[in-house]
């Protein structure tokens, strides 16, 4: 059954407002609208006039993501006729070049736009994205740092920069980026998780433990967080054990206080807690899949936990 015009528009609206990419769905819904010319009729209708152009833009971007260049060109042409001078439309042209892999043309287009308004951050970001997809990692970092110096409140840029640093194994710098992200949005537990992981990699197990705990505080029964807690407490306890058995008494105190500010008892109870919660997550029968999907990052919500994987977890916890 073909969805009605009003329903299609409603669907596209919901995609746009939720901020999801959903490119394939957008193209599926939007393509018949463009091809049948229904959008064209819509733009003469007073109520839909303003929506029509937004829809064109939305469908263009989705089409570029799915490499449906024919559809993209149709939309861009329609937009160009209506807004011949618009930066926003010209940006789409640049994105078309990008999608086709013609990076030099895209860069040319963006440079041209930046000459008109050198501080247009959207275009600046597009240019950066193009540079990132062609350039060397270090070059990319350099240009991104330049951008961040001017727009330090752009969290997407910090995330990207962090990613680039991580690729280069520059963990201290990556940690700095995540700190900035935490300052920008202190209630986002994804940033805490990232920070904990970087700190763990840097060897600051104690700090990492604090941040893993913060994650589990912000989102209840966060599997990823508890795995981290387990990892940290396990490692700290082992280290403390090693120190206690091998060194003199005086040295033990200094060495262990260098290692962690926590007592063995706290570590033990945290360790217990982590084990308990992880097992709880895997054992509770109702809604496990949904829970996992909402809690841990990167878990595919459609794969139920197999008994085998549960066994693996249990074995790991026993270590």
């Amino acid at each position: 059954m073909k969805p009605s015009f009003a329903n299609s528009i409603k669907l596209l609206d919901s995609y746009r407002k939720s901020g999801e990419a959903k490119a394939v769905e957008t193209v599926q819904t939007g393509k018949p609208l463009v091809e049948s010319g229904k959008i064209k009729e819509a733009k003469d209708d007073g109520n839909l006039m303003h929506i029509a152009w937004t829809l064109y833009e939305q469908i263009t971007i989705a089409a570029l993501i799915t490499c449906d260049f024919e559809l993209a060109t149709t939309c861009i042409n329609a937009l160009t006729i209506k807004f011949p001078k618009s930066t926003r439309v010209k940006k789409l042209v640049g994105m078309e070049f990008e999608a086709k892999g013609q990076h030099n043309q895209a860069l040319e287009k963006y440079n041209e736009l930046l000459e008109i308004d050198p501080s247009n951050s959207v275009i600046l970001k597009r240019k950066l994205a193009t540079l990132l997809s062609v350039g060397e990692a270090l070059e990319a970092i350099k240009s991104l740092v330049k951008y961040i110096d001017i727009f330090p409140n752009d969290s997407d840029a910090w995330i990207k920069l962090c990613e680039l640093y991580l690729n280069e194994h520059m963990y201290a710098q990556a940690a700095f980026c995540v700190e900035e992200l935490i300052i920008l949005a202190p209630s986002n537990n994804y940033y805490y998780l990232k920070y904990a992981e970087i700190q763990y990699t840097l060897g600051n197990v104690d700090t990492a433990l604090s941040y893993y705990l913060k994650v589990t505080q912000l989102s209840r029964d966060n599997l990823h967080g508890f795995y981290g807690v387990k990892l940290c407490t396990g490692r700290l306890l082992k280290e403390l054990d090693r120190i206690a058995s091998s060194e003199t008494k005086k040295k033990v105190a200094t060495l262990s206080s260098n290692l962690t500010s926590r007592s063995v008892e706290t570590l033990n109870s945290l360790d217990e807690l982590a084990t308990e919660r992880i097992l709880h997550c895997y054992s509770s029968n109702h809604g496990v899949v949904e829970k996992l999907a909402s809690m841990s990052i990167g878990t595919d919500p459609h794969t139920p936990i197999s008994p085998a994987s549960k066994k693996v977890v249990e074995e790991w916890l026993k270590l």
Binding site: Q217, T266, N268, S269
Partner: peptide, 27 residues
Amino acid sequence: LDQIDQTVLKMYNKNPSSSSSAIKNKN
């Protein structure tokens, strides 16, 4: 995050009393 151990232990109904005196709380 100074008090995070206690907060989390309490949140998940783990009795933190065994460790409450022990935390040195100096990061």
